[in-house]
Design a binder for these strands. Structure first.
Lengths: 345, 345
DNA sequence: TAACATTATGTTAGCGCTAACATTATAACA
DNA sequence: TGTTATAATGTTAGCGCTAACATAATGTTA
C-alpha cells in the first residue's frame, strides 16, 4: 500500500475532527473568524489549543497561491543604516500574518538579481528592495512581478512601483552648502565603498562647492573599500598629507566621520577650529561624541515603516495617495562644524 | 466546471512537457543532477531556461515534508554583535539551497517563544537561537523539534542540542582581572540593557574584583535602558557624581565604552591616566578611537559560521565531533587601560 | 546467453491546505 | 404562510511538487 507519512504534527483535519466540523470551517475560523458562528469558533479554538495546532504555512501558500512572505533585499546586514530600516519593517509586520524573507546582496548587483529571482519564486506578497540602481534584468523581473514593490532608501522619478526615501544628491548638497556657509575654504570629501548612493551624495556635494566657488577635485578622496571608523582616519591622513591646508571634510557616512574625528585628535588638530567635520545619516553616536559631530539626519526607521504601510494599503485594495514618498533629511548642526567667528580665516 | 488558476508562472509540468520527459525526471534533474542522464539533463536545463522556470518552494516543501528554511532568532537587529553573526550565517548559506527565516525577539522571552512556535510551524530544516536563556516552554518546543538546534553567542553545559559561543562570565572576569592588574583601585561597572548575557559578564567581573580585593558594590551602575553611546556617557557621569574617586570602568559593551570615553573627554578626565576604560566585543571602532579602547574581542562572525557548519554536518548525516564549541575571547589591551607605571596611585 | 544487479525513467498518489461551488439553516418580508 | 435573501457550513477538487513503488534499459558475471 502506498502511504506517505506527514510531518507528524497535527493537521487541520485533526482539529476539524476533534471539533466535529469540516476542515474548511476550521480554515475559516482561523483566517476570518467572523465567518464562523461563536459556537463553532469556540470549539475550534479549544481543539487548536488542545492539539497545539500550528497551520502549515507551505500548504496554505500552495493552496491559496499566495504566500504571506514579504521579500526584503538589502546590500548590507552590518550597516546600521539598513538595520534601522529592517527593524522598522519587522516591527511593523510583527502583528500581522506576514513573514519577512531577508536577503543580503552585499552591494553586488548580480547577487541582488539572483535574490530577486529566488524570492519571486516563492510568490511573495510584496517586495522591498534597497535603492534605485537595479540592473535592467532585476528591474524587469520586479516590474513583471505580480506584487507590490517598494524601493527604499533612495528617490528617483522613475519607480518600479513605489518608493520611500530621500535624495542623496540633495543631502550631499546640503552638507556642502553648510561647510561653505560656515566659512571653511578647503573642503574635502572622504568617500568609502562608493556605492551609487554615496556617488550621488558626492555629486550633490560637488555641486554645492562649485556654486560656492570652493570646488577643488584635488580634495576628493574615495575608495571602494568598505567604510569603517579606521578608514575614516586613514583617508583623512592621506588627504592631509597631500593637502595640509585642508580645513573641512564631508564624510560619506558617520563611521567615516567618527574616524576622521579620531584622526584629528590623534594628529592634534582642533575640531572644529582647524577642521570641520560632517557625516551622513546621523547615527546615535554623533550627538554623543566630543565634540559632537554634525551630520545629515535621515529617518531610516520611518522609511521601513512607511514602506510596509504602503504595502499593506495596496494589499488591502486601497492604493496609497502617492507612489513616491520623499522623507527628506535634516541637517543636524553640532560642534564639529561650529567654529567661533573670529577663527574664520 | 471547477477550475483553479495557479499563480500563472510555469510549473514543473510545463518544463517536463517541453523537455519531453516526466515531471519527476525534471524534479530529479534539478535536485540531484547525477540521477539523470546527460542527454535529458541538457534538454531539461534548456527548457528551464527558456521558460524561466523557478521551482515553487512551497509546493516542494509540502510534498517533501521538509522546507529548506533555517530559522534564526536574534534579540536585536540593530546590535552590531548580532549583525556580524547574521552576516556569517547568510554568507555561509548563500551557495546552498537554504533560506534564512529571521526573527527579532527584541530581548523579550515571550516574543521569542512566539517566534519559535511560528517558525517550527514551517517545518524548518534547522533552528539557530541566540543565547541560552529561553523560557521553559521555548526550550521544550525546541527540544521536541525534529531538526537540529544551535544556540549561539553563549555557552552552558546544558545545550538544547548544539551550541557555539563563549563564556560571558569568563569574559567579564578577564576584564575585571585586567583592570585590577593594571593597578586601578576604584573600578566601576556600567551596564545597560542588562540582558542575561550582560548579567553574566557582570558576575564574572564582580568575582574578579572580589578576588583582587577591589570589589565595591557602590561602583556598580546598571539600567534596563538599551545601550547607546550617549548612555555610556550619562552612566559614567552618574557614577562619578556619586564616587568622584572612580578611576576605571568596565562597560558591558563597546557602545557604552565609547560613550564613557567621550564623557571623560568632555569632563577633562585623562584616559587612561585618570580613568581606565574597557569595553566588550571589540567592534571595529575600538582600535580606531583615540585613545584606542581596550576590549574583550569576541568572534561573532565565526560563531555564525560554525553554527551553520554544524547544521550542515548534521543534515548530511555526519554529526559534528563536539556538540558544544567554545570559541573563547581575547583581551585586546590598548591605550585606554595602559597608563604609565608612575601614574599608578 | 541466461540470470541477476544496476541505472534511468515513469506512474500514481498524496503532502495540508483553500477556492469554488453546493447545500442547509436562519432571518426577512410580503 | 410561502417566498426569497442571507448567513453558516459542507463537498470536492486541485495548488505544484516529490515519495514510493513500478518498469524499462543497460551492464555484469559465469
Amino acid at each position: 500500500m502506498r502511504k506517505r507519512k506527514g510531518a507528524g504534527r497535527p493537521t487541520i483535519s485533526d482539529v476539524a475532527e476533534r471539533a466535529g466540523v469540516s476542515t474548511i470551517t476550521v480554515s475559516r475560523a482561523l483566517r476570518d473568524p467572523s465567518k464562523v458562528s461563536d459556537h463553532l469558533r469556540r470549539k475550534i479554538n479549544n481543539a487548536v489549543r488542545k492539539l497545539n495546532y500550528v497551520p502549515h504555512s507551505h500548504a496554505s501558500a500552495l493552496a491559496s497561491t499566495r504566500s504571506n512572505v514579504i521579500g526584503v533585499i538589502v546590500p548590507s546586514l552590518t550597516n546600521n543604516v539598513f538595520a534601522d530600516t529592517l527593524r522598522a519593517i519587522y516591527d511593523e509586520l510583527y502583528q500581522g500574518p506576514f513573514q519577512v524573507q531577508l536577503g543580503n546582496s552585499r552591494y553586488v548587483a548580480k547577487d541582488e538579481e539572483r535574490l530577486v529571482r529566488t524570492f519571486l519564486g516563492q510568490g511573495p506578497s510584496a517586495m522591498i528592495v534597497a535603492g534605485v540602481d537595479q540592473t535592467d534584468a532585476t528591474r524587469e523581473l520586479l516590474e513583471n512581478a505580480e506584487c507590490p514593490v517598494v524601493q527604499v532608501m533612495d528617490i528617483s522619478d522613475d519607480p518600479i512601483d513605489m518608493m520611500v526615501g530621500f535624495s542623496h544628491f540633495e543631502g550631499g548638497r546640503a552638507a556642502g552648502v553648510h561647510l561653505v556657509q560656515k566659512g571653511y575654504k578647503r573642503i574635502g570629501f572622504l568617500g568609502a565603498r562608493m556605492d551609487p548612493r554615496s556617488h550621488r551624495r558626492m555629486e550633490g556635494f560637488k555641486e554645492a562647492l562649485r556654486s560656492g566657488g570652493r570646488y577643488d577635485p584635488d580634495l576628493i578622496v574615495t575608495t571602494t573599500d568598505s567604510s569603517s571608523v579606521s578608514l575614516g582616519g586613514h583617508l583623512l591622513e592621506t588627504l592631509r598629507k597631500r593637502r595640509p591646508d585642508l580645513d573641512a571634510v564631508f564624510c560619506n557616512n558617520d563611521d567615516m566621520a567618527l574616524g576622521a574625528l579620531f584622526g584629528c585628535q590623534k594628529a592634534g588638530i582642533s575640531v572644529p577650529d582647524d577642521m570641520g567635520i560632517i557625516g551622513f545619516n546621523d547615527l546615535e553616536m554623533m550627538a554623543a561624541s566630543y565634540p559632537a559631530l554634525t551630520s545629515i539626519r535621515t529617518d531610516r526607521y520611518q522609511i521601513g515603516k512607511r514602506a510596509v504601510q504602503m504595502i499593506k494599503s495596496v494589499l488591502d485594495g486601497e492604493p496609497p495617495e502617492q507612489k513616491i514618498i520623499d522623507l527628506g533629511f535634516e541637517l543636524q548642526c553640532r560642534e564639529s562644524t561650529t567654529r567661533p567667528k573670529s577663527k574664520t580665516r
